[in-house]
Design a protein around this nucleic acid. Structure first.
Length: 560
DNA sequence: AAAGCACGCGCG
DNA sequence: AAAGCGCGCGTGCTTT
């Protein structure tokens, strides 16, 4: 059953609709205050909630203690359907195309783009539903369902439906994880900061350790006014001292043996800790022992999630000790091992590489088959194939890899050719890469030799993008299915009154579950089962393993 | 003074 | 040791 939840005057309206989007009841107006109660009541019928975006409604509902099982996120699904090659022939895609301005690269969207970044601390106050009433949303849903029905190939149609379901589940999970937050022990974080930087300085001042290093650098580089935070300033000072670097990047500085390099690198490292994850970050993003980032589902064209605020997807290793389970609980950190290479194996149906992928360590398997047992070489070669490396060691290893695995390498090469020619590519479940911009197309019609060279560079760059898109995007789909399957199992535990865990973090190919001690075993099992289920949902029964490495730990730094 | 860009570095 | 893909964000610096 589908229940439409739309904006209506100051509150909302709820209407039953059929799978094709026809109303099967009158729209019921509900005030803001009544909404949680009404939705909770209706949820007992296990509907699929159809709404503009999960972000518009679900944070508020969750804050009132209302959890929902499933939804259809019109904005996310619309964006997929408007771009997918599988629905390119439909009215839906053709209408969406008209909405795209022809002078930029904005992806087609059936509804409004996401709201501007909300200011921190206002996660639940600031969000206003998009101005979209019952009729508008119902029509949108009907149009999306019609587009789905227009996909003739039953297999492809099923995949696309799976993608929309997984994406919508992701939207729900993202809001729930945002609500739950990552368990964060502030005093452990502060301890790390104080040990590395000294006591907290007044606002706008360097902490003692940075101050000392800065003075040391000024002295060693004979530059009394040096600001090491200014690349220009720093570069001039280095040059004055005969350190001939072309940039101030860490790896380039490491080439030099000058005695000032060591304190400089130390300064850079500590400065990073202070500015990106120091006391200010802690004040801003951690409340009541939880880090509450905002996840942006569909924030990356490939289908990966992005995040907004607090750098949720970049929790650096050196502060992970502060991510700590609550008393009587554990963190279960699960990681899909070598996900992208395994997805490539499944996509390309490379039986030879599948043999290697039967091993828990895929790189070791590949090393044994084609690289004389050299695991590092095998890894560099394979990642190079997925990213489109042309130079360096990775580039040199490509022919060797192609000889051993013509199908897998051929698959990514084909994706690269498509991109270079200005065509789009499509993931396993049907998410397509954006079409090239008009500017791109224009660049390819160059005449002079100089223009031609530039055009080739741009074309190859797009080829690397599409090459990676199919693999990264399909891997993101696997991860979305994994996450959705895991959530379903955790909810079942709870519904049956058994101990369960809560999803608290997700990062591309990694999930974190916070669970009471007596729930750990079941959660671990659920994580593994969900991974198997995700594989089968996406690829059916294939002889490729998607092993998950799981660490049960007190703190995040102990995982891996 | 605000907005936008380049750099550099964190994560997968 | 970096390279080839995808991101967010703080800082300095330039443009508006």
């Amino acid at each position: 059953m589908y229940l439409l939840l739309a904006a209506h005057q100051d509150g909302a309206a709820i209407q039953r609709i059929s799978p094709s989007g026809k109303p099967t009841s009158d729209a019921r107006p509900v005030t803001k205050g009544e909404l949680p109660g009404v939705v909770r009541e209706l949820e007992l019928q296990r509907p699929r909630w159809v709404w503009s975006r999960a972000q518009d409604w679900y944070p508020e509902l969750l804050a009132r203690g209302v959890e929902l099982e499933r939804c259809h996120d019109l904005a996310l699904c619309g964006s997929i359907l408007a771009n997918s090659a599988l629905t390119a022939h439909t009215e839906y895609a053709k209408n969406a195309e008209k909405l795209v301005q022809d002078d930029d690269t904005t992806p087609a969207r059936a509804l409004q783009p996401p709201p501007p970044p909300s200011t921190q601390g206002a996660l639940f106050e600031d969000i206003k539903p998009v101005v979209a009433g019952v009729v508008e949303l119902r029509n949108e849903f009907a149009a999306q369902q019609a587009a789905l029905a227009d996909v003739d190939d039953a297999d492809l149609s099923k995949r696309l439906q799976l993608l929309l379901a997984a994406e919508s589940a992701g939207a729900i999970i993202a809001v729930e994880m945002q609500h739950a937050g990552v368990p964060w022990r502030e005093e452990l974080h502060e301890q790390i900061l104080t040990e590395a930087l000294g006591p907290r300085p007044p606002l706008g001042h360097r902490p003692p350790a940075l101050e000392a290093l800065c003075n040391e650098l000024r002295h060693m580089l004979n530059s009394p006014a040096l600001n090491p935070d200014s690349p220009q300033d720093l570069m001039r000072a280095l040059h004055r001292n005969g350190i001939e670097v072309k940039s101030t990047r860490k790896w380039e500085l490491q080439q030099s043996g000058h005695p000032a390099i060591q304190p400089l690198l130390a300064y850079k490292q500590l400065s990073r800790l202070h500015t990106a994850n120091g006391w200010t970050w802690l004040d801003t993003w951690v409340r009541d022992g939880r880090f509450h980032p905002e996840y942006v589902v569909g924030g990356v064209v490939s289908g990966r999630w992005a995040s907004r605020g607090g750098g949720a997807l970049q929790i650096p290793r050196n502060i992970r000790a502060a991510v700590h389970a609550e008393p009587g609980h554990k963190l279960i950190v699960a990681d899909a091992s070598q996900l992208e290479p395994r997805v490539l194996v499944a996509l390309a149906q490379d039986t030879k590489m599948a043999e290697a992928a039967r091993d828990k360590d895929l790189y070791a398997g590949i090393a044994a088959q084609g690289f004389g047992g050299d695991r590092q070489k095998a890894k560099v070669a394979l990642l190079g194939a997925i990213y489109g490396a042309t130079t360096g060691e990775s580039g040199r290893l490509m022919p060797q890899l192609a000889r051993t695995y013509p199908r897998a390498v051929g698959f990514v090469e084909q994706a690269a050719r498509e991109g270079e020619a200005g065509r789009t590519v499509t993931t396993r479940l049907g998410r397509s890469s954006p079409a090239p911009s008009l500017g791109w197309l224009r660049s390819q019609q160059s005449t002079t030799a100089e223009e031609q060279r530039r055009a080739d560079t741009i074309a190859r760059s797009r080829g690397r993008f599409t090459r990676n898109f199919v693999v990264q995007g399909s891997a993101a789909e696997w991860a979305a299915c994994w996450l959705a399957e895991l959530r379903r199992r955790l909810r079942t535990f709870r519904a049956e009154g058994r101990p369960s865990g809560e999803l608290v973090f997700f990062l591309h190919d990694e999930v974190m579950v916070h669970a009471a001690d007596d729930a750990v075993e079941a959660c671990v099992e659920a994580i593994r089962e969900a991974a198997d289920a995700a594989k089968e949902l996406m690829f059916g029964r294939i002889p490729v393993e998607f092993p998950v490495s799981i660490a049960v730990v007190d703190s995040y730094d102990k995982a891996k």
